[in-house]
Simulated scan of single mutants.
Amino acid sequence: MTFSTPRLSRTTRILAVGVASAAALLLTACAPASTDDVVSQTGSATADTSAAKSLSDIQDAGVLVIGTEGTYQPFTYHEGGSGALTGYDVDVATAVAEKLGVEPSFQETQFDALLAGLDAGRFDVVANQISITDEREATFDFSTPYTVSRGVVVTAADDTSITSLADLAGKTTAQSQSSNFYDTAKDAGADVQVVEGWAQSVALVEQGRIDATVNDELTFLDYVKTNPEQAAAIKIAATTDDVSRSALVTTKGSDDLVQAMDDALAELKADGTLAQISSTYFGQDVSE
Rank of each mutant, 00 (worst) to 15 (best):
V214M: 02
N215D: 11
S176E: 09
Q175P: 09
E196Y: 09
S178V: 00
I234A: 00
T184V: 15
D211G: 01
A233M: 05
Q207M: 14
Q207W: 09
N227E: 00
A185C: 12
D222A: 15
A212K: 04
G170L: 08
A169L: 04
V202S: 11
I234Q: 05
A203R: 12
D187P: 05
T184I: 14
A231K: 05
K225Q: 13
I234F: 05
A233G: 11
E196L: 12
F181S: 05
G197H: 06
L218S: 11
V224C: 07
Q175R: 07
I234Y: 06
D216Q: 09
Q177A: 11
T226M: 01
S179Y: 11
T213P: 05
F220S: 01
A190Q: 06
G170A: 04
A169D: 07
D187K: 15
E217C: 00
E196I: 10
D216P: 10
E217W: 00
S179L: 06
T184G: 08
L204G: 08
A169S: 13
D167A: 12
S178E: 02
W198D: 04
I210M: 06
T219Y: 03
A231L: 06
Q193L: 14
G208Q: 05
T184M: 09
A199P: 05
A232G: 15
V192A: 12
K186F: 09
E229S: 15
N227A: 01
V195S: 09
Q207V: 07
V224T: 13
S176P: 04
Q230N: 15
Q193E: 15
E229A: 15
R209Q: 09
S176N: 14
F181P: 02
T213D: 04
Q200A: 11
S179C: 05
D191E: 14
E206T: 13
A203N: 13
